[in-house]
């Protein structure tokens, strides 16, 4: 029972980071019909910029409070990523709005690898230790179940950010313009919406969220490196599709569900595929021997955890392409 509770907590934490990233995917897809493949790498840039800033502060202002350092790092990273997101949209994607269907996606892949390469040039290929500025000493709310302060902060701040975004989209003028643009560019611009500005804003907001997610991710795992964006990126995309791409609430739900499935699934994958659980008459002699010596014969160990995202992605796309909460069906091929 404690294990399950622990896995749920871990799943929620990872899931809320996925959700933050997924929001960026889903907003861009909703408005442009583009899978912004480079979104995961913006997360990486965010984490590495924050790391750079924090290292600088640690070196020159050793007396500064760690929380303040983290906040400054976060703000600088978010700003850097917002600028980056804007520049990418302006230079790489804008020209391709009416291009044949595969061109924007191929460009996005190119941008993704360009960002990774540049990061590799600037920060090298090594894994960097991300300073643990907030205590990682685990608390024990229930006997045998651990949660770190970092995780608590991740949960709370991502909930706040998501709430804020929903308010922004549903209650403000800007949000209304965004929804109108997502519905139909031409009509929106006829109604006096500056769609170019709205699209830029969408990229800026999404990139900012990705930067925050990157800092969270690195704080949680304590590392950062140039290729760290790929896996969370593809998982967040899965989350966005799972929830129904183009749908903000869906992205959040998808993120949390994916985080939980992964965390719980990884915990039980080994045991579930352990051939020692087979009835005796199905086991062959050497297997029985291994098992009776307290060994196991797990077909799939937790190393296969990353497969979940891809399998879920495939299943959702094939059987329910509109996702869990999907309402908008985009016709863009």
């Amino acid at each position: 029972m404690e294990t399950l509770l622990q896995q749920i907590i871990n799943g929620l934490v990872v899931g809320s980071v996925y959700a933050l990233i997924a929001l960026g995917y889903t907003m861009v897809y909703g408005i442009l019909g583009l899978i912004n493949f480079a979104h995961g790498d913006i997360l990486m840039v965010g984490a590495l910029v924050a790391l750079q800033v924090i290292s600088f502060l640690q070196e020159h202002f050793p007396t500064m409070s760690p929380v303040l350092m983290l906040l400054i790092g976060l703000v600088v990273a978010a700003l850097a990523c917002m600028i980056l997101g804007y520049v990418i949209e302006r230079t790489a994607y804008r020209r391709l709005r009416n291009a044949p269907r595969l061109a924007p996606l191929i460009t996005a892949i190119g941008v993704s690898f360009l960002l990774q390469t540049l990061a590799m040039i600037i920060w090298g290929r090594n894994y960097h230790n991300f300073p643990q500025l907030i205590s990682t000493a685990p608390l024990q709310p229930v006997e045998g179940v651990f949660i770190t302060p970092v995780q608590i902060i991740i949960l709370i701040s991502s909930a706040l950010l998501m709430g804020g975004l929903i308010l922004l989209v549903n209650k403000t003028r800007l949000g209304r313009a965004m929804r109108a643009t997502a519905e139909n560019h031409k009509v929106a611009s006829l109604m006096g919406v500056d769609t170019n500005r709205i699209i830029s804003t969408t990229f800026i907001i999404g990139s900012g969220l990705a930067a925050v997610a990157g800092v969270m991710f690195s704080s949680n795992y304590g590392v950062a490196h140039y290729a760290m964006g790929f896996t969370p990126g593809i998982k967040a995309f899965t989350a966005a599709v799972l929830g129904g791409i183009g749908n903000l609430g869906g992205a959040m739900l998808g993120g949390v569900v994916l985080g939980l499935v992964e965390s719980i699934g990884a915990g039980y994958l080994g045991t579930a595929t352990d051939l020692c659980n087979l009835p005796h008459w199905l086991q062959w002699a050497s297997l029985t021997q291994t098992c009776s010596n307290g060994g196991s014969f797990e077909l799939l160990s937790s190393n296969y955890q990353d497969i979940f995202a891809f399998v879920i992605l495939g299943i959702v796309l094939i059987f329910r392409p509109t996702g869990l909460l999907g309402e908008r069906v985009s016709d863009r091929a």
Binding site: L34, I35, R101, L102, L105, I234, F237, V241, L275, S296, F297, E298, L299, S301, N303, Y304, D306, I307, A309, F310, V311, L313, G314, L317, P321, R332, A333
Partner: peptide, 26 residues
């Protein structure tokens, strides 16, 4: 459709790679 197909095939490639990496056990 086009872009979804791309992502799912990407996933397929990754799954194959994960299996290559881990099929040394049991």
């Amino acid at each position: 459709r086009g872009d979804y197909l791309a992502i799912v095939t990407l996933g397929f490639g990754e799954i194959v790679r994960i299996f290559m990496n881990n099929l040394n056990y049991p």
